[in-house]
Design a protein around this nucleic acid. Structure first.
Length: 472
RNA sequence: GGCGGCAUAGCCAAGUGGUAAGGCAAGGGACUGCAAAUCCCCUAUCCCCCGGUUCGAAUCCGGGUGCCGCCUCCA
């Protein structure tokens, strides 16, 4: 089954085919680096990274670009409040972004362009728009002329009149049309500025993404993603600028994730109801946060709550335990000669379903269901059979490792991250404890368990021996 | 006012024409020196309401009710 994605440009699910066979050009709108990111910001970053990993898992080469907006009103105001330069502010929160994103297990993008590093490309794009009659200069500002671009409103599915009617846009006498937007803003006193054909100034918000995407990925890219709040005006404007300048289709598939809600309301800075990623990670593991993000379809709203996160903690524990149980069985159970076809078929069916779900518009909740089915099948099998079918269990192990590689919700790498010396020491103590238990020397057995617990090693006594693992 | 989305068990949630995935919680059982866990089983005659189409609908159509988002900075 090929990959289907819901395209916001056409408002329907479509088969995904990249412009160039085997290669995907993927652009995601990144953060404005004026503060720590909150969990609502993290939703697209986690989700689209996983979509990209799934594409790689399917054999695509993915060039994945995520920008940093490091110059705009919010940056200028915040820098002023803190008494530092806009550049220092950007450095500080880009560093913070990487700390948070790395901790959340978000894989690094191929490239992280910054708006201020693309000023020449931005200026060139604005010049092109002026030449082609899509933009005009007023007192050092440059505006995009929406009336000159007939397709304006296609993405948000609204005509100019409709967009205006509910409008809370203030009338700006400089603009020809109220929906015209700034491509370049003339410098105000004290603001950072760059030299341009229209005098000192800085880029408008929307132009940076078009300029960077075009420069890095080309005039037509495969996927452009971001939160739904970017649909209008940000992405609508990006299309207008890019297509008016190049005359080519800018983005082939637009995808947007639904909002993260808190107490039934959108989590956003202006509402003041945010939970930062840092705060969330003090309480919940990255695995649980990731699982939580995957538990609903990416286009649906998702409610953040302590209850929901606690559910995710338990669910992630179940997956991880399933993995541990499986590894333990493969190491310690006697092998059976003949194959178990029922188990094998179940595992295969489960993996096939996992793929189908992800390929059906990135249905992560469905794919998770398949992963849980696999765990239950294995657990159930291990509960009923003393001797095990090694081949089938290896199949299951391979599948769960794949789930973890794409979704990052089991933590296999961290579980295995123990050096050999430590491992042999642990195993020596575990067998010493086993002997003590057999000799009914429970005092000693408990002491060993205590000692290892202090080192972050958890012991669990099972009917098949004592299983140990890292505390996570 | 315009545009769009959602309504499925106690909670979260998938499923969009063929007879209700999965997770959490609760209940029952297993295991166990203890503890902490863990595992297994079980849970919706039914998918907001009313009407229609169909052999057949949670899924399609019409109407209604409720909730949310966008049209302004926002992931």
């Amino acid at each position: 089954m090929p990959l289907f994605l819901y395209n916001d440009l056409t408002h329907q699910k479509e088969i995904f085919t990249p412009l160039e066979k085997g290669k995907v050009r993927f652009y995601v709108c990144g953060p404005t680096v004026y503060d720590y990111i909150h969990v609502g910001n993290a939703r697209p970053f986690i989700l689209f990274d996983i979509l990209r990993r799934h594409m790689e898992d399917m054999g695509y080469e993915v060039v994945y670009v995520q920008n940093f907006t490091d110059i705009d009103d919010k940056m200028i105001n915040k820098a002023r409040d803190l008494g530092i330069s806009v550049d220092e502010l950007a450095e500080r929160f880009i560093t913070a972004y990487f700390e948070d994103a790395d901790a959340l297990g978000i894989r690094r993008a191929t490239i992280y362009p910054r708006a201020t590093h693309y000023i020449p490309q931005i200026i060139k794009l604005v010049e092109r728009l002026i030449e082609r009659g899509h933009a005009y200069v007023v007192d050092g500002d440059v505006y995009f002329d929406v009336l000159s671009f007939p397709g304006y409103g296609r993405l948000s599915k609204q005509s100019l009149e409709e967009l205006l009617s509910g409008a809370r846009v203030e009338i700006d006498p400089k603009k020809r049309h109220p929906l015209d937007f700034a491509l370049w803003k003339a410098q105000k006193p004290g603001e950072p500025a760059w030299d341009s054909p229209w005098g000192m100034g800085r880029p408008g918000w929307h132009i940076e993404c078009s300029a960077m995407a075009i420069d890095i990925l080309g005039e037509t890219i495969d996927i452009h993603a971001g939160g739904s709040d970017l649909l209008f005006p940000h992405h609508e404007n990006e299309i207008a600028q890019a297509e008016a300048a190049t005359g080519k289709a800018f983005v082939r598939y637009w995808i947007h994730n639904g909002y993260l809600l808190i107490e039934e309301e959108k989590m956003s800075k202006s509402l003041g109801n945010i939970v930062s990623v840092r705060e969330a990670m003090r309480l919940y593991s990255p695995l649980a946060i990731r699982l939580f993000m995957l538990s609903a379809h990416y286009r649906s709203p998702l409610s953040f709550s302590g209850e929901a996160l606690n559910h995710a903690v338990s669910a992630a524990g179940r997956l991880q335990n399933g993995w541990k149980e499986l590894s333990f069985a493969l190491q310690h159970r006697p092998r059976k000669k003949e194959r178990d076809d029922v188990l094998r078929e179940t595992i295969e069916a489960t993996e096939a379903r996992y793929e189908e779900e992800l390929n059906d518009d990135f249905n992560t909740a469905g794919a998770l269901g398949a992963a849980f089915d696999c765990v239950r099948a294995v657990n159930s099998y291990l509960a009923q059979h003393e001797e095990v079918d090694e081949e089938s269990l290896i199949e299951a192990e391979r599948f769960l490792a794949r789930v973890d590689r794409v979704m990052g919700i089991i933590g296999i790498e961290r579980l295995a991250d123990i050096d050999d010396l430590m491992t042999s020491e642990i195993e020596r103590l575990v067998s010493e404890r086993e002997r003590a238990r057999k000799a009914k020397d429970f005092k000693k057995a408990d002491a060993i368990r205590e000692e290892l617990a202090k080192k972050g090693i958890i012991l669990e006594d099972t009917p098949h021996g004592t299983r140990w693992s890292k505390a996570m």
